[in-house]
Simulated assay, not measured.
Amino acid sequence: MNNLEEKRRAMVAMIEDWRSSGKSKKQYCLEKGINEAKFYYWYSRSKETESTPGVFIPIEKRSGTREIEVFYPNGVKLKVNGDLLLLSQLIRLY
């Protein structure tokens, strides 16, 4: 295991320890002797790993008609009656 991976694991453990402590970030850093800027850096990095960017959210096709509106940056507005294939084609147009 490389140094960066070890450091990342240690910092993730530190964030988990802070969360379970019930203390403010500032108070936790003071008590543990941690540089506040470093803590906030790793805190922001931990939030990045919590959300999984680039993951698609499935769209379930339901019975009944739903109207979906598409707003293009140039001001054009389209209404589509629940046809997901048509909707995907319209999104790719722009």
Results as ranks from 00 to 15, higher is better:
1 M>S: 06
1 M>Q: 02
2 N>G: 14
4 L>I: 12
5 E>T: 10
7 K>Q: 12
8 R>M: 10
8 R>I: 13
9 R>D: 07
9 R>I: 11
9 R>A: 09
9 R>Q: 13
10 A>I: 10
10 A>V: 09
12 V>P: 00
13 A>H: 08
13 A>I: 05
14 M>D: 09
15 I>H: 09
15 I>V: 15
15 I>P: 06
15 I>M: 11
16 E>A: 06
17 D>R: 12
18 W>Q: 11
20 S>R: 09
22 G>K: 02
23 K>W: 07
23 K>T: 03
24 S>A: 05
25 K>P: 04
26 K>E: 04
29 C>K: 00
29 C>N: 01
29 C>H: 02
29 C>G: 02
31 E>D: 11
33 G>T: 05
33 G>A: 06
34 I>R: 04
36 E>C: 04
37 A>T: 13
37 A>G: 01
37 A>E: 14
37 A>P: 03
39 F>V: 07
40 Y>V: 05
40 Y>W: 11
42 W>F: 03
43 Y>W: 15
43 Y>G: 01
44 S>H: 14
44 S>R: 15
44 S>N: 15
45 R>P: 00
45 R>V: 10
45 R>Y: 05
46 S>K: 04
46 S>M: 04
47 K>V: 09
51 S>P: 01
52 T>D: 13
52 T>R: 13
55 V>R: 07
57 I>T: 12
57 I>V: 12
57 I>H: 09
58 P>I: 09
58 P>Y: 11
59 I>S: 02
61 K>A: 10
61 K>D: 07
61 K>V: 13
64 G>M: 03
64 G>S: 04
65 T>L: 13
67 E>R: 05
71 F>Y: 12
71 F>N: 08
71 F>H: 15
72 Y>S: 02
73 P>K: 10
73 P>R: 08
74 N>S: 03
75 G>W: 03
75 G>F: 06
75 G>Q: 03
76 V>I: 12
79 K>D: 00
79 K>F: 01
80 V>K: 00
81 N>S: 12
81 N>T: 05
81 N>Q: 10
82 G>F: 06
82 G>C: 10
83 D>W: 01
84 L>V: 04
84 L>G: 06
87 L>V: 14
87 L>K: 11
89 Q>W: 07
91 I>R: 04
91 I>H: 00
92 R>N: 06
92 R>Y: 01
94 Y>A: 13
